[in-house]
């Protein structure tokens, strides 16, 4: 029998994590015009930061010698399991810290990256960022203290001490959805603000925006700090959810999955990004179920994923060329104008 609750929690967890990525991608690429083909770089960096803090720091605070029993060895993993079931306050504290550190470090990383990249022609930005993602992956592979190609296991899920997997999963889901909500609210408010208008003007014609006094590189850098920071947090959430990281998890395909989400949902709308994430993560979660029926299928299910995603994209784009949800001008301007028109007449 299929475990419906377990399936729902699992799907919604993936959804929350990917929706954070999709919402921030729509802000940086759909609205601000920074073509980010390196989304996975920030996601992966956040995941590795989360992995490092939630293992090394946790072990060190608990008095385990991380040189003798580093977290990528069996002893390390066993020690982590023990700590994470016995010391809830410590686990939660370190986890909270890892979320904050991830936001700041990944954000600053994004901010600093904009210095070289925003000054190259806009067409090259995407590919420069794509390379950043690949370079980071190369670094993880070659760093022993994060487990090299094998990566790290045993990263504690911060609610594991609850003892009931369903319950700890639910708590973690609530936390992830809260962070998604925060990301959404920030993005939505930026969009409806004068800053959102300025961002759209820059995307439309950066030279004209420059002539209207907008410091285009600076504005883009700040936005990229914010979106990168949130992507890093999504990475940490992911690492602690699946309890492991390895370089294979952060391939460029992840980036294009997120792109597919905003293309389907509508790249200028955070709600669209969320809908896109909902649809694509559902497909991703259903595919393993289909794959488990392998022996009854007349074809290998491996190819279903690209076929599904391609099909959905084609159908949506034929009907809605700009994605399911499109941009609307902020509401209150409209009401202010109607009021004034009424006054005038």
């Amino acid at each position: 029998m299929i475990d419906i609750t377990g399936f729902l929690i699992n799907w919604l967890e993936y959804f929350a994590i990917y929706a954070i990525l999709a919402v921030t991608l729509s802000l940086e690429s759909g609205i601000s015009g920074i073509t980010n083909f390196g989304k996975v770089a920030f996601f992966g960096l956040g995941a590795y930061l989360g992995a490092i803090i939630n293992t090394y720091l946790l072990l060190a605070i608990s008095g385990v010698d991380v040189v003798k029993a580093p977290p990528y060895t069996a002893e390390g993993v066993i020690a982590l399991i023990e700590i994470s079931t016995l010391n809830p306050a410590l686990v939660l504290g370190v986890f909270t810290l890892s979320i904050l550190v991830s936001f700041i470090v990944t954000g600053v990383f994004g901010y600093l990256l904009t210095y070289p990249i925003i000054r190259v022609g806009s067409g090259f930005v995407g590919f420069t960022l794509l390379c950043v993602g690949e370079v980071l992956r190369g670094i993880y592979v070659n760093m022993e203290f994060v487990g090299g190609t094998n990566g790290m296991l045993g990263i504690p899920q911060p609610f594991i001490w609850l003892g009931i997997p369903m319950l700890s999963g639910l708590c973690y889901l609530l936390l992830s959805v809260t962070i998604l909500a925060l990301t959404y609210i920030v993005t939505d408010r930026i969009l409806g603000s004068p800053l959102g208008r300025t961002l759209r003007s820059i995307r439309d014609d950066d030279i004209a925006a420059l002539c209207l006094g907008k410091d285009v590189p600076k504005i883009k850098s700040k936005i990229f700090f914010l979106t990168s920071g949130f992507s890093g947090v999504a990475g940490t959430l992911y690492a602690c959810y699946v309890s492991s990281v390895n370089p294979q998890m952060f391939v460029t395909l992840v980036t294009f999955n997120v792109w597919a989400m905003i293309i389907i949902g509508g790249s200028e709308s955070p709600i669209g990004a969320i809908i896109g994430a909902l649809i694509l993560t559902l497909i991703e979660r259903i595919l393993p179920l289909i794959a488990s029926l392998n022996e009854y299928l007349p074809f290998t299910p491996d190819y279903l994923r690209p076929v599904f995603i391609g099909l959905i994209m084609t159908i949506v784009l034929i009907k809605y060329p700009r994605g399911l949800i499109s941009m609307k001008p902020p509401k209150f301007i409209k009401s202010a104008v109607e009021e004034l028109i009424r006054e005038a007449s």
Partner: peptide, 27 residues
């Protein structure tokens, strides 16, 4: 700016608007 309405095109002009900083934009 082609994705801004006429009124938004006019509103984008004044420089140093309070709502153009991230911290103010969200409030």
């Amino acid at each position: 700016f082609h994705s801004l309405t006429v009124i938004e095109n006019l509103l984008v002009t004044p420089v140093g608007q309070r709502g153009e900083s991230i911290l103010n934009a969200v409030r």
